[in-house]
Design a protein around this nucleic acid. Structure first.
Lengths: 210, 210
DNA sequence: GTTCAGTTGAACACTTGCGTTCAGTAATGG
DNA sequence: CCATTACTGAACGCAAGTGTTCAACTGAAC
């Protein structure tokens, strides 16, 4: 019935330790990269014996996969466009753009992006999993929102998914690249990009440019 | 006067070997990442003794830097929008968009991007150098082109640099992410993105949508 | 209290890789 | 021919890291 209550005989697994290992692994892996991260350091950071790590995960790769899954899950809860304001079309688009850029600009996000991309080279399914859990999921949500706006008569959109990509891409502009390649951040520039994206998007898709 | 003709005394440096080392280093570094690449393998691939590598570069990091600089230079010659066709505004924009996407889609480009981003974590100047040598240079060139079109009365553009970013970003869409995260390529989808980018760009900036 | 599984610390074998040393060989200029 | 410089192959010291083994300990369930 319930998946709880394992009711095993011996000493139960220390869940806190397990989670500490995954957390420490994420820290090391996404900080230093897979090859440069060491299991000994991860064990030390987690306050755990190295043997415990091997008992749980058996393998460096397996530990990496676990860390990636955990991080994906954690990030999943960090973005919501549910609570968007009630103002004009422009105001709402602007708020969405800002939320997106803020979400993507967080250092831990940039770092995670870099590492997953690097490891994707030899572990393509890791990249695919991330893409599905992150960007693609976000695109669908935003496309649905645009579709609703179109149905409400505010926008004239043929392909909501394409439009979603276009708006998001314009908001990011090259800021995406610049963050990945450690270019000094410039909030003012980000703002101009979002303004510009809203402007172009409205010119192309809005029924009346208020 | 001339930087040629060093006229040194002993046996001259074997330039072919030097270049072979840099080439092999690029292969290994951008294939496996800095930490996972081994100098012994690089030396073997270059058909050279390990000592020779150390005589030339002294250090793994120095060799990495040399490989990055070489690759940047090599890539620099791989993109030109000089020979754009003479058709309508839409036709020309479409051609530019296709050239951009094709350039950015090349596997070696994707690979290079991934690795530079990963190493940027601990060597920010590497990322900055790449950004300046690649994307920013490209943006300036394209912005100049758009400015020329505006001066010719075809476009109505306030900020050519921003407009350049917007067009390029829309052409890439999420294709950028998808390539980095090993999502199966889809030329048809790329084409739709370029079509959409041209459409939106013209609606926003063209003086008359022919 | 006994039993059984999780946990620990320390040691272990094994591999890999960096960077160095050295004796010897190849190529070039004087 | 000789001095000088580039290159080679092999070996070495050293450090780090993976994954394993083992005896001891801990804690919950029966």
């Amino acid at each position: 019935m319930s998946s709880e209550e394992p009711a095993r005989k011996g000493r139960p697994t220390d869940v806190a330790k397990y989670e500490a290992i995954v957390a420490a692994a994420g820290q090391q892996f996404f900080d230093r990269g897979f090859a440069a991260a060491s299991i000994e350091q991860i064990a030390a950071d987690a306050g755990v014996s190295k043997v415990t790590v091997y008992n749980h995960f058996g393998d460096k790769r397996a530990l990496f996969v676990a860390a990636v899954e955990s991080e994906c899950e954690r990030l999943r809860g960090h973005f919501d466009i549910g609570d968007l304001p009630r103002g004009s079309l422009r105001t709402r688009l602007h708020a969405i753009g800002e939320a997106m850029v803020a979400f993507l600009s967080r250092p831990e996000m940039v770092q995670f992006d870099r590492r997953i991309a690097a490891e994707t080279e030899h572990e393509p399914e890791v990249g695919a999993a991330f893409l599905a859990a992150g960007p693609h999921r976000m695109r669908q949500a935003f496309a649905g929102l645009l579709k609703a706006m179109a149905d409400a008569g505010e926008l004239r959109i043929q392909d909501p998914v394409l439009a979603a990509e276009q708006f998001a891409s314009m908001c990011k502009g090259m800021g995406d690249l610049e963050r990945r390649f450690a270019f000094p951040a410039d909030p003012e520039l980000d703002r101009r990009r979002i303004d510009g994206a809203v402007e172009v998007f409205c010119l192309a898709y809005a029924k009346d440019c208020d």
